[in-house]
Computed example of a mutant assay.
Amino acid sequence: MFVLSHIKDTIPIHPSQFGVPPEQALISELNKKYANRVLHDVGLCICVFDIMEAGEGKVRYGDGFLWYTVVFRMTVFRPFPSEVILAKVKSSDEDGIQLSVGFFDDIWVPLTYLPQPSAFDSNERAHFWLPGSEATTSHELLDSPTSERMYIDQGEIVRVRIEKDEFYDDEPGPPMATEGVQVKVEARRPPYTITCSVAEQGLGPTSWWKQAEAEVMDEG
């Protein structure tokens, strides 16, 4: 889930920080710059792990800052494909399920990666799985007894497998106009999204499998 990424940068230290040990001042400035920021094709930066190299601070004409060239390792959130992680259900709609790991919310389970057969219950605002059912349409599934449905409710802890991640770099710009008519500006996409699956044995709400284990033990 977490990896260490090597990054090189040039960091300024304000004169008010000259009394602080250089490494401590650099780590503080690096965290201000990178923490909670998505780096394209790298991931979501969490915090500085350590500084590997740091040159001597140099003063540039006109500002009074000490500028350091540093090579450091950053702790980055980027689960790898096929990794299994735990997340919490944040919300559900007709398109799928949104998950959260607390500090990152752009995790999605689309319809194609839900256990089959499944459907979305608009009254409960949750998807449910109907194991063993031969129903092929949402209408047939929604006619099933609620006692037989296995819901994926909001707030539940789910075990998911990472399928892929995607980075977007939607640069903001002025709204475009064509022949005097303003063109609708599309909503910006999150800079980093993760797609997951719960369509395999052992995946989904952890409560499903705890119940299954308890039933097996009872039978034993």
Rank of each mutant, 00 (worst) to 15 (best):
A187M: 04
A212Q: 14
K88R: 15
Q211H: 13
G96S: 10
L86M: 13
H139R: 15
K210E: 15
P205H: 07
L142F: 08
G173R: 09
D170M: 04
A187H: 00
A187N: 02
M150A: 09
K164A: 12
F77E: 02
Y192G: 01
E94P: 00
Y113C: 13
V160E: 11
P115W: 04
G202A: 10
W209P: 10
D165M: 11
P205K: 02
L203W: 06
D143Q: 15
T136P: 02
E156S: 15
E134W: 05
G132W: 02
D121E: 03
P190Q: 07
D105P: 06
W129H: 13
A135K: 01
V198Y: 03
V89M: 06
V185A: 09
F77Y: 15
F120M: 07
R78V: 06
Y192E: 03
P190L: 07
K90N: 11
P172I: 03
S144I: 04
A177L: 00
E179W: 11
S118K: 03
F104C: 09
A187V: 04
I152C: 11
V101E: 08
V109F: 03
I97F: 02
P115S: 10
G202R: 01
N123V: 11
F103P: 09
R125I: 04
P172L: 04
W108A: 05
D106F: 08
R188L: 09
D165H: 15
H127C: 08
H127W: 15
K88G: 06
E83C: 09
E140C: 02
T195E: 11
L86W: 07
S197Q: 07
K164R: 15
V84K: 14
K210C: 11
S92Y: 01
E83D: 14
P115V: 10
L111H: 11
D105S: 12
L86I: 05
Q98F: 06
F103M: 12
P117H: 07
P110N: 11
P175C: 04
A212G: 05
A119C: 09
P79C: 01
V84D: 00
R159F: 01
S91H: 05
P145W: 06
E124Q: 15
L141V: 02
W108P: 00
D170I: 01
P175N: 04
T112H: 14
T136A: 10
Q211W: 06
A119V: 03
D169W: 07
Q211F: 04
E83P: 08
P131A: 03
F120T: 01
G132A: 08
S197I: 10
Y113A: 10
V109S: 09
A135Y: 01
Y168E: 13
Y151V: 08
E186G: 00
I152E: 07
E148H: 05
S144W: 00
P145V: 05
G132H: 08
